[in-house]
Amino acid sequence: MTRDMAFFEFLCRMGDNTLVLGHRVSEWCGHAPVLEEDIALANTALDLIGQTQMWLGLAGEVEGEGRSADDLAMLRDAWDFRNVLLAEQPNGDFGQTMMRQYLFDQAHVLLLQKLAGSSDERVAGIAAKAVKEVAYHVERSRDTVIGLGDGTSESHRRMQAALDLLWPYAGEMFTDDEVSGIMAGEGIAPEPSSLRAAWDAAVQETMSEATLVIPDSDFAHAGGKTGFRHSEHLGHMLTQMQWLQRAYPGARW
């Protein structure tokens, strides 16, 4: 694998995570438990879609085949998506949505902090902007997980169920492979495994404050960020997200 191929893969991983998760969060619009949450969810989705424009824009540039961020978002099929499986998991109830968000945000913020010092100035620039937004995301998702974990017996039960359900999808965020090896060698991005200890510590602290128990298993599903085997959920998301571009090819919107 050449450096540019690995770089393109890496950028798709970044952009597809924010695209797919942003899309999922946007599905809540108008249906949140309380008005402030409607506003906060829309805001989170908006930040993630904005970051997608930057990551996939750069991916198209690095690829050099004239594809725009929109082309990458709207005209690739599921096997070309490089998001982790966690991001494409369905919203479930509000607790499941916020647990997914927290597990992701906590890894996202640690990664972006490192990327802000990337040897590639464009990556460093995007990360420096995104990290400010994501610092807020993690503060909010952390507070919500704690609040609902520690809240009533029902909210506690639901949050524990969400953690149990999503835990096997967290590990994929920290696996290394050829792409990450090349990125680390070039000083563009850290090896994902190097972020695990800090993530574990932060998550442990949060769950303990939330009175939730982390499952005693390090089993991790894989196949999202390599594109080898996504879940069935992604295809359904794409049929909706890509519908207009697919139904009216070449139209400008």
Partner: peptide, 30 residues
């Protein structure tokens, strides 16, 4: 009023249109 517009957020044709629509619906909740 968030609902009829929220109906199209997941089908917005471009990333920019999606972002604009999200911002709009967020304004309305505000």
């Amino acid at each position: 009023g968030q609902l009829p517009e929220g109906n199209w957020i997941t089908r917005a044709p471009t990333l920019e249109r999606k972002a604009i629509l999200l911002a709009k619906v967020q304004d309305e909740a505000g």
